[in-house]
Amino acid sequence: MIQIQELHKRFSKNKVLIGVDLEIQNGGIYAILGPNGSGKTTLIKAILGMVLPNKGKIHLNQKDIKNQWKYRENIEYLPQIANFPGNLKVSELIKMIIDLRSKPSSSDELIQRFGLEPFLDKKLNTLSGGTKQKVNLVLTFMFDSPLIILDEPTTGLDPIALLTLKELIAQEKKKGKTFLITSHIMQFVEEVADEIVYLLEGQIYFKGTIEELQNLTHKTNFEHAIAALTAQNV
């Protein structure tokens, strides 16, 4: 369970998060949405401890995460831009992350699933964007952690890989895991998300299921509902 209280963050003069209060229960898929610059990534990074809040507290399973690092053992994170040390081979990168976390992994199965076997001996700087993203996904899903954070997971994926990703998410969800996902592909969000957290100008503007959102905005189409949500404010 994630509890966020009165979270403030600004980068020099730019206030990105202004008093965010959020509670996320265990289990389920939460889509964090919002226009560009609304603070989605900052919020995620605050949970990961990569961004240090100016004010406010974040508790993960009732424990304050400030100045901690061990708790990240129970989080998987898929960063937005998949860029790795170029001189490492794919297999070496995977081995390295396994080595760093020293946890059992299901990397072989995932490699097979994304069809990465031919690339294992390639250096990372020779891979295409899509392949890199696949490697990125393998790294994220290969451990069995209760919280998974995906920042734009669909970037650069071909339709088959996208399908595999969706299967994976569904499969892991069944195990009772919690997902935090940001995406610009509304179709994808609509398909996978249980709940929407809508951020606008550094604050939680809406939190609820897709149905609730549709009811609120009187739009049946999800994409239009989101657009309406943004427009209402403007």
């Binding site: 990961l48 401890g49 990569m50 960063p79 860029n83 790795f84 976390r101 954070i149």
Partner: peptide
């Protein structure tokens, strides 16, 4: 190695 650093920052290190 900025992106790689971010990857590492998300790890329990």
């Amino acid at each position: 190695s900025r992106e790689f650093t971010e990857l590492l920052l998300a790890q329990p290190i």
